[in-house]
């Protein structure tokens, strides 16, 4: 057994193509980013090597930490929303009528590109013409919240479309995971008199725990480098109240021509992701898991 399954040539054959691809297209840029982070450079003019100056500036840059805090909040919300997605998936997996249709419908927002989603939600959030505020006004609320222009709530307002957009992504992963749960195990539990709720929580949930852990990492890392919708809908504003790490990086590198500093932010983002992933691994690994 072991000899067949540890054939070096086969392993090399399976792993090298992909490794080569990410080596060229991800690791080269990654190393370059770290290096650019040590330059005083606008992207095309003269380069000046300044060592770790950008990174030490970053440490003291309150704007960076503010954006990092916003990214963490987003990560927290996204992770919490996993429970909601999981609950929906468990319900849909419990053989109720129309589950397939519901699942398909829940995935629709994911098909839309960010341009469309941003347009839609800008309309929903519009301070006086928007759907939410029209509803609130008709309910007698005099000064409904200014969703995207009030610095105190903009961050929370913009989480809503993000969480909504990603519902499909996770529901579809959980659907596949739940599909993998052997029918016999569920049947056995049913015969033992377990209620659907017990089956979901005691039988199915433990069996998909490895997938769930993966999705936690995906949600956290995805949130930490999230960019699209925030950039289109608020551009990080107002008064930078919705600035996240990736939008801050983009602004520095591409709008303000501080490519060196922007790269330093990008690299710091990567390091933060690494630390977070490592922590998650520490918190969730059990001995029979592959460590990731």
């Amino acid at each position: 057994m072991k000899t067949v399954m540890s054939n070096k040539w086969t392993i090399a054959l399976y792993v090298w193509p992909a490794l080569l691809l990410i080596g060229c297209l991800i690791y080269i840029p990654l190393i370059m980013t770290g290096y650019y982070g040590m330059l005083e450079w606008n992207g095309f003019g003269p380069r000046e090597f300044i060592g770790l100056e950008n990174y030490s500036r970053l440490m003291q840059d309150s704007m960076f930490w503010k954006s990092a805090y916003h990214s963490f909040l987003l990560g927290l919300f996204s992770t919490a929303s996993l429970l909601l997605y999981l609950a929906v998936s468990l319900i849909l997996a419990s053989k109720i009528k129309g589950a397939e249709l519901f699942r398909k419908i829940y995935l629709i927002p994911m098909l839309l590109s960010s341009v469309a989603i941003a347009q839609l939600w800008s309309k929903i959030f519009d301070p006086s013409n928007g759907m939410i505020n029209r509803l609130l006004i008709s309910l007698g609320v005099e000064n409904p919240p200014l969703w995207l222009s009030d610095p105190n709530i903009v961050l929370f307002a913009i989480f809503i479309p993000i969480i909504w957009q990603y519902a499909g992504f996770y529901i579809i992963i959980y659907a596949a995971a739940l599909k993998n749960v052997p029918e016999e195990v569920v049947e056995a539990a049913r015969i033992d008199g377990a209620t659907p709720l017990q089956i979901a929580l005691r039988v199915k949930l433990p069996l998909i725990s490895s997938v769930f852990k993966v999705t936690i990492v995906l949600a956290l890392v995805g949130s930490l480098k999230y960019f699209d919708l925030i950039y289109v809908m608020t551009g990080g504003g107002p008064n930078r109240a919705s600035e996240v790490m990736a939008s801050y990086m983009y602004g520095e590198a591409f709008t303000k021509y501080n490519f060196g500093y922007g790269s330093a932010i990008g690299f710091a983002l990567l390091v933060i992701c690494l630390i977070v992933t490592w922590l998650i691994r520490k918190l969730t690994t059990s001995k029979d898991d592959y460590q990731y």
Binding site: P127, L146, W147, S149, D150, P238
Partner: peptide, 21 residues
């Protein structure tokens, strides 16, 4: 100015003028 203008893009704000609000 219209409420919440700091969250509106120029195009969105323009809508208020084009619709005579």
């Amino acid at each position: 100015f219209e409420k919440g203008n700091s969250g509106l893009s120029n195009d969105e704000a323009k809508g208020y003028f084009m619709n005579e609000q």
